[in-house]
Write a protein that binds this DNA or RNA. Structure first.
Lengths: 107, 107
DNA sequence: TCAATATATCAACGGATGTTGATTAGTCAA
DNA sequence: TTGACTAATCAACATCCGTTGATATATTGA
């Protein structure tokens, strides 16, 4: 599998993780820092198994990390992964813009 | 519907549009500038109705624009939309980082 | 007007995804 | 060790999504 293959598959899975409003709400909550599942559950008013499902999706995509402390599990944003994703989009935009500038490939 | 509701729904639909490898390949092609469907079709080796479906998804999400010229329809990246999405991710990352810094909400 | 070309739309299908309620696993306190 | 608590997993279900092949629409050139 080429690097591009990997990149595309990886990016697609990250974007998929962000393509659901419940998961975006989770990300919003986690912007305020690490939270245990019970706090997220209360904040979102969502059933426990539902939260668990969405947190697993975010975790599998590498966008959040988890850490057990006693009987609680704390989730937090993976800032590097979010940064990488932001960079990817910035680069797509930049390359698209470059192409359409004077002397670019579109002119 | 609140502004946040709109924003989340809008962002979710944009991320959904980017969550499929065929559509990411389309975005890659369009980084090189405006392309007609037939060029994309050849480039990706995908059936026509399949391309049309994915281009519609990207367009509905506001990530690409289309323009008819004669019997061809040209698609191009919407650079503003891509920039907005990149900014959104950057801000999520920045706010998450801010929170975990010295004197942040996590400390 | 007719035929050819480019693209969009549709119907049908299979597979993926999200929700719910129930069960299981892990951890702690009494 | 037992009971309470937190979280993950599972099964069942409905819905959504992507693919394919067929059909419809739009534009052009003959």
């Amino acid at each position: 599998m080429s690097t591009t293959e990997l990149d595309l598959a990886h990016a697609a899975s990250a974007f998929h993780a962000l393509s659901d409003r419940t998961r975006l709400e989770l990300v919003q909550f986690l912007m305020g820092g690490e939270r245990c599942v019970c706090e997220l559950q209360e904040g979102l008013g969502a059933a426990q198994s539902r939260l668990s499902f969405h947190l697993k999706t975010l975790k599998d995509a590498g966008l959040v990390t988890d850490r057990r402390d006693g009987r609680w599990v704390y989730y937090a944003l993976d800032l590097d992964a979010l940064g990488d994703l932001a960079s990817l989009l910035s680069e797509v935009r930049a390359r698209g813009a470059e192409c359409c500038a004077d002397d670019g490939c579109c002119s």
